[in-house]
C-alpha cells in the first residue's frame, strides 16, 4: 500500500487539512475532494490550460501538479476570485466582450489573465498573447478574448 500524505493547504482563502494519495493531482484534489469543479480538465497533459489555477502567485496547470505539492501552499481557483456577488473585473470583461462561448476554457483563461495582470499591469498585445498561448480555445478564435483582456486592463486603470 502506498503511503498517504497529510497536507495543509489554503484554497481560495480557506484552510484544509487533507490526507492525499501521492498520485492524486491538484486538479483531482480540487474537483473530487473539494468539489471545486470550476477548474476544468481538458487534456490532463498540460497542453490546453483549462485546468489553470494560481499556485503561490503563479499560474500552473493543476493537472501537472501533485496534490501533495500543495502542502503549505496557497491555491486560487475560479471560485475564489469574485467578491461576494460581484464579479471580478476580469470576469465581467469576459462576459461583456463576448469572450465566452462554451465556457470550458473560460476559468483557465480568466485565471491566467489574472496572473498576468498581477504581474504586468499594463501588458502589450504581444505580452497578452505570450501569456495566454497555453490556454487553448476552440470556440472563439481568441479575438474576443483579447478584447476582454484589454477591457479588463481598462477597468483596472
Amino acid at each position: 500500500m502506498v503511503k498517504k500524505h497529510q497536507i495543509r493547504t489554503t484554497v481560495n482563502g480557506e484552510e484544509y487539512d487533507l490526507l492525499v494519495d501521492p498520485k492524486k493531482t491538484l486538479l483531482q484534489l480540487l474537483r473530487e475532494n473539494l468539489d471545486l469543479t470550476g477548474t476544468k480538465e481538458g487534456c490532463d497533459e498540460g497542453e490546453c490550460g483549462a485546468c489553470s489555477v494560481i499556485l503561490d502567485g503563479k499560474v500552473v496547470n493543476s493537472c501537472l501538479v501533485l496534490a501533495v505539492e500543495a502542502d503549505n501552499a496557497e491555491v486560487t481557483t475560479i471560485e475564489g476570485i469574485h467578491r461576494g456577488e460581484d464579479l471580478h473585473p476580469i470576469q465581467k470583461s469576459f462576459v461583456d466582450s463576448g469572450a465566452v462561448q462554451c465556457g470550458f476554457c473560460t476559468p483557465g483563461m480568466i485565471l491566467t489573465t489574472k496572473a498576468m495582470l498581477d504581474e504586468i499591469p499594463d501588458p502589450s498585445e504581444e505580452d497578452i498573447k505570450h501569456y495566454l498561448e497555453g490556454n487553448l480555445c476552440r470556440c472563439t478564435g481568441y479575438s474576443k478574448i483579447i478584447d476582454a483582456v484589454n477591457l479588463a486592463i481598462k477597468h483596472s486603470k
Partner: peptide, 10 residues
Amino acid sequence: QRDAVDKVKG
C-alpha cells in the same frame, strides 16, 4: 451570452 456569468464564475 445569458449563460456567461455562470461560466465565468465556474
